[in-house]
Design a protein around this nucleic acid. Sequence first.
DNA 1: GCGACAG
DNA 2: ATCTTGTCGC
Length: 223
Amino acid sequence: MLTEQAAIELQENLREQLILRDQLPTDLQLIAGVDVEYDKESDLIAGAIAVLDFHTLEVKALATHVMHVTFPYIPGLFSFREMPVLLEAWKKLALHPDLIVCDGHGLAHPRRFGLACHLGIVLDIPTLGCGKTRLFGDYEPLAEARGSIAPLLAEDNKEQVGNVLRTQAGINPVFVSPGHKISIDTATEIVLKMAAEYRLPETTRKADHYGREAMIAYKANGQ
DNA sequence: GCGACAG
DNA sequence: ATCTTGTCGC
């Protein structure tokens, strides 16, 4: 199995392929959410990819996959834990999206290579990361209004790695950063648009829902 | 040595 | 991630 050191070297090599400029359709049609559920009483995980119509939020395609975890949870090496099951689900997906929203960080990572970056490079699809808690970067307090942002800055306080974004007034912000083929500003703009009603983008909420459902079904039927 | 640490 | 309903506070 992959050692921790080999995983870090892999990140540093793949990072060179990252594109942090907008290289996605200007007229987005399909936007996908990915999420992974964990079973509390076993080492099963369920990956889900939900492809939504960017404008109506209607689910246009769905794919899930259940398997055993193959890598421990190590902050900074998160993608090695969740990517395998997501790649298996991707193989089953009939409709490929213009952009993927990941539950976790992209550029806002100690080596600037979070799950969103890794998935974007491997699939060669535009991706962005939307995390619920901070992993890397410093930021100042932000206003309470929906749409308020604060830049997420690397330790030197010069390099911006993402934005802290308040998607709902008075509710904890989310952490947005580019994965691949997208800019910080565009990623932030899209997350705000996708989180019109709740704290998290609709893509993430749908993927979470179907992933949970897939886990329950798998445990009930075996397979 | 101490604190931080996506899901 | 998961444990989890009512309850505290604005």
